[in-house]
Design a protein around this nucleic acid. Structure first.
Length: 417
RNA sequence: GCGAAUGUAGCUCAGUUGGCAGAGCACCUGGUUGUGGCCCAGGGGGUCGUCGGUUCAACCCCGGUCAUUCGCCCCA
């Protein structure tokens, strides 16, 4: 019989990694609400058009990485490749902007992108995502960055670098685009990689973060966006940096930081680790002032970021989590005592203890061996010839101390120690 | 989409020049006349990913294929 495997890039998370995920989620649920963020759960699937309009048709995500399916009426739907578009849709569709001037959401859950899996990159992966809608002021930028750094710090992560840049706004970016395009057009085109030649026309900013060494070299002296922004954008970015300085949040300005999703404006950032191989980005985000309007909503500015949980998990590997240890193990020596053992285990659980019964009745040696492996604090031995009916031996597995008690009093023995 | 490496017991992996399929862990039994993780002895477990080729003979050499992993690209 052929074995059924998991779909490529879709992973099972057993207890070790599952607990790590739980810990990240618990940290998020502790930190974010203190900044006024509330949890929002949106569907895993949306109409494909939402992502095309939200993320940008020129992006790799939309062009070649989406899981699209058709429903019975022929409508194209897509497993979400990121969270922001769905949050925007929910915000617009429910008229949230009419009820409150500022809305802050976080979402936690799986995303899907059809990429080649490798370390820190799965086809189903998980993100923790925050969005702040309403404020255009730089304090919102600084606040959400501080919150993100606090979250990462609370996880105990070190050696992370916050890289930050500003991409300008609707009024100054087109000019910079043109400046950059013209500068690139003056270069020896044969030395640019094919991607860059194409991007130069479709989205010249993306040329800046091309990883091909010859392109990097060739564009080293390209015009810097920060020096070509309008006064408003400059003032905005200066204020953001001022707040970060005041809060002691370290950062590096990276003129070539251009994010892969088209909707970003003004402040953008990325958190990078050099400890987990090539997929070193653990979080990234930015302002997206035109996005809500572009999706058919009101002209509401916004800003947000996403953390990749698998990548955080890589950084947290080997971290000691609190030990989970069962309280009891019911050792059954004789088939005639199985009913009693089952009942005993249930009554202990009702009393608040955690544990299990040994399902197989075997020799004393074998069953005690199982009891030892269970790592339980107490073993309750039931079904020995020498015991009176209805009594059990409660053995403290650490001290070795044991005593014989009526089954009804077993719970009391566990409490005492 | 491109490149590289790796597929041998449930798990982690050895396997020499092509010559009987191995170890550790895990599991089971016994040592121990009914009391745990250690120790000792024994045991069950394999179509060597798969299809083909070369050879008297293939886990080993060659080719195809599938799968996994790492990297490029892209992204969190």
């Amino acid at each position: 019989m052929a074995q059924i495997q998991a779909i490529k890039g879709f992973a099972d998370h057993f207890q070790d990694s599952s607990r790590l995920f739980e810990m990240m989620e618990a940290t998020a649920r502790e930190v974010f609400p203190r900044y006024g963020f509330g949890e929002l759960r949106t569907p895993l699937m949306e109409y494909t058009d939402l992502f095309c309009r939200g993320i940008g048709t020129e992006t790799d995500v939309v062009q070649k990485e989406m899981y699209c399916i058709q429903d019975s009426k022929g409508r194209s739907m897509t497993l979400r490749p990121e969270a922001t578009a769905g949050v925007m849709r929910a915000y617009i569709e429910n008229g949230v902007h009419a009820r409150e001037a500022v809305s802050k959401f976080f979402t936690i859950g799986p995303m899907f992108r059809h990429e080649r899996p490798q370390k820190g990159r799965m086809r189903q992966f998980h993100q923790i995502n925050c969005e702040c809608l309403g404020p255009k002021e730089p304090e919102a930028d600084a606040e959400i960055i501080c919150m993100m750094m606090e979250f990462l710090g609370k996880l105990g992560l070190k050696n992370l670098t916050l890289q930050i840049n500003s991409l300008g706004c609707a009024s100054c970016r087109p000019q910079y685009r043109k400046t950059l395009h013209d500068w690139l057009a003056a270069l020896d085109q044969d030395k640019l990689c094919p991607d860059c030649k194409r991007r130069m026309e479709t989205n010249p900013l993306r040329v800046l973060d091309c990883k091909v060494p010859t392109c990097k070299e060739l564009t080293a002296a390209a015009p810097v966006i920060l020096e070509n922004e309008c006064p408003d954008c400059k003032a905005h970015f200066d204020a953001v940096l001022r707040h970060l300085d005041a809060e002691g949040v370290p950062y590096q300005i990276n003129h070539r930081l251009v994010r892969g999703l088209d909707y970003y404006t003004r402040t953008t950032w990325e958190v990078v680790s050099n400890e987990i191989g090539s997929q070193g980005s653990v979080a990234g985000g930015g302002r997206y002032d035109g996005l809500v309007e572009q999706l058919g909503g009101p002209a509401v500015p916004g800003i947000g970021f996403a953390c990749g949980m698998e990548r955080l998990a890589l950084l947290l590997e080997g971290r000691e989590l609190p030990e989970v240890r069962p309280d009891f193990y019911v050792a059954v020596l004789d088939d005639t005592c199985r009913d009693a053992a089952f009942g005993l285990a249930q009554s202990l659980r009702r009393a608040g203890f955690a544990g299990t019964m040994g399902y197989e009745s075997r020799s004393m040696k074998a069953t005690m061996r199982q009891a030892g492996k269970s790592n339980a604090r107490f073993t309750l031995i039931i079904g020995t010839n020498e015991l009176a009916a209805g009594t059990v031996i409660v053995k403290n597995m650490e001290s070795g101390e044991q005593r014989e008690v009526p089954a009804g009093e077993a719970a009391g023995c566990l409490t005492i120690a």
